[in-house]
Simulated scan of single mutants.
Amino acid sequence: MVSQKVVIKNPTGLHLRPAGELCKEAVKYQSSINFSFKGGTANAKSVLSVLGACIKSGDTIEFICEGEDEEEALKAVVGAVESGLGE
């Protein structure tokens, strides 16, 4: 299991478009990819889970990856968030 915290830079937080981009990146990997935010944990491969977390700009989330390609998965999702998820 590997994990890393990342700050959301998108000015409008993780609304539908960036949430979709995050999920698109996450589903490329076999590992389970979850994130923790405000005491809860959600599946990063589910757009509804990402939207349901109500993540705003400046919030910090922690990705938790577990599985055979966990290192690559963590690097990819953190990189996607840091690059702004297409915005």
Rank of each mutant, 00 (worst) to 15 (best):
V47P: 01
Y29R: 01
G84L: 05
V50H: 09
F63K: 10
A19L: 03
V6R: 09
E71A: 15
C54G: 15
S3P: 00
A26L: 10
A76R: 11
H15Y: 00
V47A: 04
S57E: 09
L14S: 03
K38W: 05
A76N: 13
D69N: 08
L16H: 03
E66N: 14
S46E: 05
C23M: 12
N43E: 09
I64R: 10
G40W: 08
G52A: 08
E66C: 10
G40A: 15
T60R: 04
K28P: 06
N10T: 12
V27D: 07
M1P: 07
I33C: 02
S32G: 15
L85E: 06
A42P: 00
G79K: 08
V77N: 00
D59H: 06
F37D: 12
G58M: 04
E72R: 12
V81R: 00
S32K: 15
S49F: 03
Q30W: 09
I8Y: 02
F63Q: 13
Q4C: 00
S31E: 14
N10S: 13
Q30M: 15
S36T: 13
K28M: 14
T60H: 03
G20Y: 01
L22K: 06
V81L: 03
K56N: 13
E72I: 13
L22T: 06
T12L: 11
S57F: 02
N10P: 04
V78L: 12
